[in-house]
Design a protein around this nucleic acid. Structure first.
Lengths: 304, 304
DNA sequence: ATAATAGTGTCTTTCAGACAGTATAGT
DNA sequence: ACTATACTGTCTGAAAGACACTATTAT
């Protein structure tokens, strides 16, 4: 830290300055953390022969208090003074859903002025990808309920315009979050403007039904990031149990990317990332498949 | 927002709840924004024949008050209640360096407890890449001085350990920031742990000389992100003026990646991203080179 | 036997790396 | 003529996409 003999324009040394410093004199925003917990789960089997389909899911909690009481929200809450953002995110997740000890990465920080009707709130969001077989969710103290919602992500409109020295891509994304008893929707307008060498992305929530705050927009952003990142990193493995078949792994890729992949090519692509085991699936109604595990020595990973 | 007839456990409607809500009752951290403004500048020519070398630079301001008075810091400051994070970042940059109206993207939000000796501070950092030919920096009201520092980024130590079901990569990065009169350094320990399917990255500032707060760590992170992103996006063009030669563009890539590239291959790679003009450089001391401009219709961009 | 999935071989096209070669201004 | 840079052609091998083929289990 600064040399303690130095004095500032008011003639104060650093020690004096710090002892007089009072954060209370300034109006400050509140800070929250929000968790986006994703998993890929099996849906019901159609027949004894067929493999179960998989679906991408997100964990939401039902708000037990105003504002947006009764709406579904991302688990999260206010950051305490003596915990880091990561600690706050893990604490809130545990309080609201009883989920403990999972990996996560920072997603984005949302700071628009009108995001929260209570006061000015800066929201720092974190994303977690979990293996559903390990988890057992139950609502905690602070939430009425915690449930997994199946994610339906659809680009329903695309408009490209060529401007003078750039262009504009306008997308509308329809998000449908559903489970046995509920269906929530959001419509997000994603505009990318290329002006000269400058790219500007703006996201706007134009419709939100049953989802609290601007969380529909945050979920849309997270899914688009997830789709992007699965192509050039190994995050998909965070969804997998210890052992898995290559078909299951492929299903995870397909459900996130929202498209079918060719088996032979997919296997070539992931071959370096996995290690064979000598175990097989059984009672499948058809030929059993070999089980693999993640190869921790896989090197060519990329990070954001 | 919630149906106004609903009442919470205290029997309050949403309207009543909001009118009684008082953010002051909770202790809150302060929130700052920090700007990482990068540019690529020409260094002096060695001879009338040779092309000037290029160097990656970052803009820092000299702190005029405690804490870290006299140290160099990222331009930035506290967020006001009625401005978004982006607005705050642009305002602070203008106040401290007179730079106006540039593009930026969010980098990361830093929330460790002891980051700032004054109080608990959450710092949201933004990254900007600018064409140096357009800029003229001068210190603003809030800073004693604003200067460009040449960035030297070196991985000085690498250690790989294979663990039980994962592995660990430990890097030490030496950062040297220098200009005519100053030399600042930082040493950052970057640990990546792969445990099962989980990747955890931790960054620790183990040495910092002349750089305020944890800004050495933030700069290290930004440079590593920049290196990564230049490979799969078109951000490099943000450093370029309207018209440029392909050699200049290649120099920008080389200076960021910290390695030489082969000309023929580089040109093939960027050919789709640029458009020819019918202009040439002149007075170069050797064969003139064709000038190009950015092709705004280039489609295969990726975003994080 | 049959349904459904498991798993492989190979053709083609595309792209990245390496390197050798030719072209052209200023002095 | 010489220097330093501008620019192009092509060989190679790796990776991505498409598709056809064989193998194996439960019922």
């Amino acid at each position: 830290m600064g040399d303690s003999v130095l004095t500032n324009k008011q003639g104060l040394t650093e020690k004096e300055f710090l002892s007089l410093y009072n954060a209370e004199q300034y109006e400050r925003p509140s800070v929250t953390v929000d968790m986006l917990v994703f998993t890929v789960m099996n849906e019901i089997k159609e027949s004894y022969r067929k493999l179960p389909e998989k679906a991408l899911k997100i964990l939401l909690v039902k708000r037990g208090n105003h504002p947006f009481m009764g709406y579904w929200a991302l688990p999260g809450g206010f950051v305490d003074m003596n915990e880091s953002l990561e600690e706050a995110a893990l604490r809130e997740l545990k309080e609201e859903t009883s989920i403990d000890n999972i990996y996560m990465e920072q997603l984005y920080t949302w700071g628009d002025v009108g995001r929260d009707p209570r006061t000015r709130v800066i929201g720092c969001s974190y994303m977690s990808l979990v293996d559903s077989s390990k988890l057992c969710v139950q609502a905690g103290d602070d939430a009425d309920d915690a449930k997994w919602f199946k994610i339906n992500y659809n680009v329903i409109e695309q408009k490209n315009t060529v401007l003078g020295k750039g262009c504009k891509v306008q997308n509308r994304v329809r998000l449908i979050l559903s489970n046995d008893s509920e269906e929530l929707t959001a419509l997000v307008k994603v505009d990318k403007t290329f002006d000269g060498n400058i790219v500007r992305v703006s996201r706007e929530l134009t419709e939100s039904d049953g989802i609290a705050f601007d969380h529909g927009k945050i979920i849309e952003y997270a899914v688009s990031r997830l789709r992007n990142k699965i192509e050039y990193t190994d995050i998909a493995f965070s969804f997998m149990p210890e052992q898995f078949s290559l078909t299951e792994l492929q299903q995870v890729y397909e459900v996130i990317l929202g498209k079918k992949l060719l088996k032979a090519n997919f296997r070539r692509k992931v071959s370096e990332m996995v290690m064979v085991t000598d175990e097989y699936t059984k009672d499948a109604g058809h030929r059993p498949s070999r089980l693999y595990k993640y190869n921790p020595n896989w090197v060519e990973r990329h990070f954001d």
